[in-house]
Every structure is written in C-alpha cells, then in structure tokens.
Design a protein around this nucleic acid. Structure first.
Length: 444
RNA sequence: GGAGACGUGCCGGAGUGGUCGAACGGGGCGGUCUCGAAAACCGUUGAGCCUUUACGGGUUCCCAGGGUUCGAAUCCCUGCGUCUCCGCCA
C-alpha cells in the first residue's frame, strides 16, 4: 500500500505534528490509548530518525554537487579546460549518488507518512472514554417531551402529512431513500431552512454562503472524506464529487490559504443539498425520511485561532441548540465518547431531538472541533499579528440543523389528536401567518 | 462542443540555459521628517525540510510529475488548472 498521490506531492502533512511526538511521545501515546490504540510513538520515532538520517545524507551530497557545479562556469570562463573537465566529471559522479540517496530519503518519508495516515486524531482530555455510543455522556437536557393523550404517530403516518410526503412516486423517479414532498409539507420544509439560515445570519453572526455542491477530488481529501470514506459519497462520471455535507465546501474555503490573524474567526453558514450513498446502512431507518440519499442541511463552519477553538465549539453548539429551542423541540446534548467519535474529531457534541413517534431522541446535529487536523491536510494557516511563522488554523463544523430531520421533529411533536399538526410560532411569519397543517393536509 | 492563450512571491508583473529565491511596481512592516497625520524619502518584507544550545549553516520550492543538460523559472513530454473567442444553454 503506497501513499495516495494527493499526499505524495508533499503539499500536505497528514494530521499529526511530528515535532510534538518527538517532544512528548508519552502524551501522544496516552491520548491514543484512550481510543484503544497501543503506543505507537516508538515506532514513529524510529522511522523518523531513519528518515532524517537519509535526508541529511542526500542533502550533503547535493551540497557538494552544487558547489562543484558553481565552479564549472568559472572554470570555463577562465579557459581552464582541465579544471572544467575535472569538475564536470565530479558533478556527474555525484549525480548518481544523489539519485540513490534521494530515493532512500523519499522511501523513508513515505513509510512514515503512511503510518501517520492511519492514526486517528487525538481526543481532548475532556472527552469521556468509552467503547461505543452507549458510553456517550449527556451534557444537557432541554424541554420536556410532551405527553400525548393518543398514540403518537411517526411522521409518515400522520394523516395531515401523508398526502405531502410521497415515497412511492419518489421511488418511481429515483429509487429507495428518496422522497417527494408537496403542498404544506414542502412549504414547511422550505420555511425551516429559511428560518435556520436567517437566525444564524441575524442573531449568530455567521456569514451566509451559497456554495457549489460538486467539488474537485482534492477538496474531499482536505476535510477527510477521502481517502478512507469514498464509498459513502457519490462521484460524477467526469470526476466531481457530490458533497455529503457543506462542511466540505465551507471548510475548504481556506484550502491552501494563509489568513491574517486579524481576520479570525471566520464563521460561515450555508443551506445546501447533501448527498450520501448510505453504504453500510442497509436496513437502518428504512421507513420515513430520516435517512435519505439526498437531503438538505444548514451547515455551520468556523475557522479560528487555535486558542479560541474550545470557546467556538461551545458557541457553535449553542447556535444549533438555539434553533431547537426557538422551535420548542425537546432535545438533549451529548458528548461523544472516544469510541464513538469519527477519526478526524478531537471532540464532538451530538444534539438529539425528541421524536414522539419513535419515543426516542434521534441525532439532528453533530458538532465537532477538528483541531488542526483538517488544516494540516488543507495547508490552511494564519499569520500571527505579532509576526513570526504561519501556524495552522483550527476548524470546526456542525449542523445547524439537518432540515429534513428537523421537519420530522416538527411534524411529530406538533401532531394533534385530529391528525392535524400545529406548527411552531417562529415559523408562522415564514408561512404568511399560517399556523397549522389541517387534517386534510392543507396549510391554514 | 470548436479555436486559442496562459500558470512566477501577499497582489500586479518582468525574466527564454549559469552570477535568479527571482527585476520593477503596489501592499505590509520599521525608520526619518511632523505637535500629530498625510506626502516624501530611507530601509525591510516568502515557505517547507535537515542541522545547530544559540548565532548560523545546508537543502528544496517560479502549477504538478517526468525528461534533456555539467547546470533549468527558462528547453522537451505528460497531467492538472485558469482565462478569452465562437457555438449551445438554465
């Protein structure tokens, strides 16, 4: 297994800071052990030493050759043919030596990088240890699930919703895991997206952004979808990838850029389509529109100084929670344990909304701080105001929120005994004052 | 889809085989002048890696990869990208 071409070009340095590992191998091992990975630092450092020795040898030979090559011109100019020939031969000899040494140096470098690529990000100390989602820790519970004096239905069973949520026709058009919304349901779906984006722009000070949904392959490496998770996304015949989340476009805004520290933080929000193959999800959430190949999401991304990323993580979480609170939807917020976090995250908060039809909390937002993991892959840095070398930025991303899942939550939580749905007050202005989907599916 | 041009530092833009990490201009930073500011003038201003306690030294990078050459930003090949004109089109 060789290094992927994208990483072979040396523009990026995958995720881990080798200097940090050299300086404090014990801390590195300790953090990884919390993810169930045994001490790797000694293996890494051995490879690192070998790599540096090879580089030193290659560069020394190169320096010799350069010195000789420089004198060649002078020898020729002064007419000293013998000296000219001697130097010329010397450079030729060195050249072969350098080629061999370079090859060894490159091989050592590739070996080290390949190992580093397989290592997940280090969890922060405040992330609870655990094997799987059962060991996630609840941080907050907001709102009380409403008790219904009738059997709460799932969203696709509610009489007023049924006519506006057509899975059969969607299947005819596109297959399974698609839905055709119409009438009041489509309207409420649209209203939700508008409401979320407006709130983020006007109250949370995020920059409204409208992004492409097809991207170059390189961008999928920047945020970490590739090389390992390509089967989760779709690619067009001419090589573009359909974004599985606007995290890809919003975060890669700073791909290969060096920002002024004064320009930080940059906080973006975008409402986009998202596309996911849901490979490996066969049989899960097959009814209703909880899990689709195509869905809409309002995404938040923050690019910030390393010192502020913890505060930004809390801020972003609050931005997402605020949407649910305005919609009067009960939710709980959990911090994912080490075993449930994705490879790129250093800390993740999940927000789960109450779905009466399922009698359960279900994920509606996932908010992660990636530290400098993505920034290293993207080569995204900032120049410190007080001078000095550029440093890697920190990046965060979170849903704010998944529009389709939010629609489900609004419908299920608002359902009434007569089959109608009472809509949250904050949506009324977006519905020209309408407040309810009546039992026959009409917005009134 | 057809035709062509181009890819250089924070930006604009020179450079067609050696002395080029790269002219010149702009921007940024520091200074002189000024009560202060502007203007003017002077100076300074890329990044990665290796090495060094440090000062410093070395090496690589002019889209990427390969080739020619004693020597490449400069020549050749391939790929990627951008732009312009025509056609088509929401």
């Amino acid at each position: 297994m060789g290094t992927h071409p994208y990483f072979a070009n040396q523009r990026t340095k995958p995720m881990h800071d080798i200097r940090m590992i050299r300086d404090n191998p014990a801390a590195f091992d300790a953090a990884l052990s919390r993810r169930g990975i045994a001490g790797l630092s000694s293996q890494i450092l051995t490879l690192d030493e070998e790599r540096r020795a090879k580089i030193l040898a290659a560069e020394t030979a190169q320096a010799d050759a350069n010195a000789a090559a420089k004198q060649v011109g002078a020898a020729k100019a002064s007419g000293d043919e013998a000296e000219f020939e001697r130097l010329r031969a010397l450079v030729a000899t060195k050249k072969a030596e350098i080629a061999a040494l370079n090859e060894e140096a490159k091989a050592a470098d590739v070996t080290l990088n390949d190992l580093m690529l397989t290592i997940p990000n280090l969890p922060y100390d405040d992330v609870p240890m655990g094997a799987d989602e059962a060991e996630n820790v609840e941080l907050k519970k907001q709102g009380t699930p409403k008790t219904f004096d009738f059997k709460a239905l799932e969203h696709f069973e509610i009489p007023s919703v049924v006519p506006g949520m057509d899975f059969e026709t969607a299947a005819k058009l596109s297959g399974s895991r698609f839905v055709l919304l119409s009438g009041a349901v489509a309207r409420v779906h649209r209203a939700l997206a508008q409401f979320m984006l407006d709130t983020h722009v006007e109250e949370n000070d995020l920059i409204e952004t409208n992004t492409p949904v097809m991207v170059r392959e390189e961008m999928m490496y920047g945020t970490g979808q590739l090389p390992k998770f390509g089967e989760d996304s779709y690619q067009t015949t001419n090589g573009w990838w359909l974004i599985p989340t606007a995290e890809v476009t919003l975060t890669n805004i700073v791909n290969n850029a060096t920002l002024d520290e004064a320009a930080l933080p940059r906080r973006f929000a975008a409402h986009t389509l998202c596309f996911r193959s849901e490979a490996g999800s066969a049989g899960r959430d097959t009814s209703g529109m909880l899990r689709q190949h195509q869905f809409e999401k309002v995404e938040m991304v923050t690019i910030c100084h390393p010192d502020t990323s913890d505060a930004e993580h809390l801020r972003m979480t609050a931005c997402a929670e605020g949407i649910l609170e305005k919609l009067n939807l009960p939710y709980r917020t959990v911090i994912l344990c080490t075993g449930d976090m994705s490879a790129g995250a250093r800390r993740t908060h999940d927000i789960e909304v109450w779905l009466p039809g399922q009698n359960a909390y279900r994920e509606i937002s996932s908010i992660s701080t990636c530290g400098d993991y993505q920034a290293r892959r993207m080569n995204a840095r900032f120049k410190p105001t007080e001078g000095g070398k550029p440093e890697f930025l920190h990046t965060l991303n979170g849903s704010g929120l998944a529009v389709g899942r939010c629609l489900i939550a609004v419908l299920e939580n608002g359902q009434q005994a007569d089959g109608s749905v009472a809509l949250p007050e904050v949506l009324h202005p977006y519905l020209r004052g309408k407040t309810t989907i009546n039992a026959s599916g009409k917005l009134v």
